[in-house]
Each structure stands twice: as C-alpha cells, then as structure tokens.
Design a protein around this nucleic acid. Structure first.
Lengths: 122, 122
DNA sequence: CTGAATCCCCGTGGATACTG
DNA sequence: CAGTATCCACGGGGATTCAG
C-alpha cells in the first residue's frame, strides 16, 4: 500500500479521534471480552483482569452511548444485566483483532529494538 | 471473520500493550506525518498541528527506541536532523491507515448514536 | 534549528464505601 | 449482582526557559 499517496490530514485527524475514544486503558479489552461471549457485569469483570467496577461501568456506558454495546436489564432477583455487542461493536472488535495481529507480528522485534537502544544509551 | 474463535487473552493483552504504546495523543500523527514525507523537526512540527516541541521530542525518541524511526544528524550550520520511517514504522503507518478507514466508515454512525443517547438521557 | 530542563495543570483511572 | 458516589494519586502533556 502506498501510504504516501494519502491526503494527509483527512485520515490523520480521524485516527487520532478514534484513538482517543478507543485507545484508553479498557475499552478494547471490554469489547474483546464481549466478543468472546462474556455477557454479565461480573462476567466481564472477571474476564478483564484488573479492572475496577468504576472503570467497567464507565467503559460500558461510553460504549453504549456510542452504539457499540447493547444493555438489557432483566428484572429478577438477583438482578441481572446482559451486555452484548452491536454490529458496530463487532466491527470494532474485528479492527482490534487486526491490531492484535500487527502487535503479535512485531512485538519481539520492538522489544529487541528497545534492548539495543537502551544498551547504546546508558 | 469469527472473532469469537480466538484464544482470548493472547490477543487481548497484545492489543492493550500496543495501544498503550501507540495510542497516545501524538505517536500516530507523527508516524503519519513521516509517512507523508516530512523529515525535519520543525517540518514535522508544522505538519502535526498543535504539538509542543517537548512532546515531539519525546514522541520521536520513543519511536526511535522502538525502531520505528531512524534519526540522522547532519552536522551543518544551521544544524539539521533528518527523521525517516523504518520498515517497521511503515508497517505501523499502514495499520494506522486501516484504523483511519474504520474511523471514517463509522464516524457519522457513532456521532448519531451519541446524539440519540444524549437525547434519551437528559 | 533542534533540542534539554523545569514547572504545573488536569484528566484518567484506582480504592473504597454505600445503595437497590 | 449491578451499580453509584467520593476521594485521591499519578502521569500525560502544555508553556516556558535555557543550551548547542
């Protein structure tokens, strides 16, 4: 692909907006968890290790606002809330998956580069 | 693509690592600027509107450490430093380009969802 | 021109306790 | 179980100044 042929600022801004929305600490992990089948609040919480209730609530609410996640409340006892990805959410999950592949493909290379760099700059 | 068929935590962690490294406010924009041909410090600075020298220096240094960017100093007067993307850097730029396409494709949909959500939740 | 160094604001996100 | 509310620490990142 010839990246140099692009109209510059068009994609530039769009990417940074998307990254600031999706590039936070938890959004992608929650989306991935949902794409793998976790549905209920504490199910997601267990799947995504280390997230607090606070941040899970915030993240889910933002995702719901953006139309990535659908929230269904079952009035029962104990109360139960079911989350699921919308088509838009799934498309984000697929994009995340591509990112994951890039990450996996270059992770070792990057780590090696860092070691070399740090070795040269004490 | 069947996202649900993936081994869960494998891609999950990799993505979040990549995002925390690449998902900051400037990295992608700098990479895009370099992929479009900007080379010198203030050239990049002009291309990426709003970035401070501080952050540009930090971002370039991190990218260099990761082997995404090569830095060549021309000892002349006035001093001149040339930056260019390595193959690894270009592969990141292409990945960013894919993200940009996803962003462009769904931007309006997301904005619409937000308006609806905010209209329902006053 | 290309940085390095310093100061400081502010948002993200963690911990904890409380409600339905 | 599924949140809400409050407090607070930390670091990203901006503005400014100094140096090679």
């Amino acid at each position: 692909m010839d990246v140099t042929a692009k109209p510059a600022h068009a994609g530039c801004k769009a990417v940074s907006e998307i990254l600031s929305r999706v590039g936070d600490k938890w959004t992608i992990q929650v989306v991935v968890a949902l794409s793998l089948g976790s549905r209920r609040f504490n199910g997601i919480k267990r799947h995504v290790g280390g997230i607090s209730q606070q941040m899970l609530t915030r993240t889910l609410k933002t995702l719901e606002r953006d139309g990535m996640v659908e929230r269904i409340v079952h009035h029962s006892s104990p109360p139960q809330v079911e989350y699921s990805l919308t088509p838009l959410g799934y498309s984000l999950a697929e994009t995340a998956h591509q990112l994951a592949q890039w990450a996996a493909a270059h992770q070792l290379e990057i780590e090696g580069n860092r070691l070399q760099y740090d070795a040269r700059s004490p």
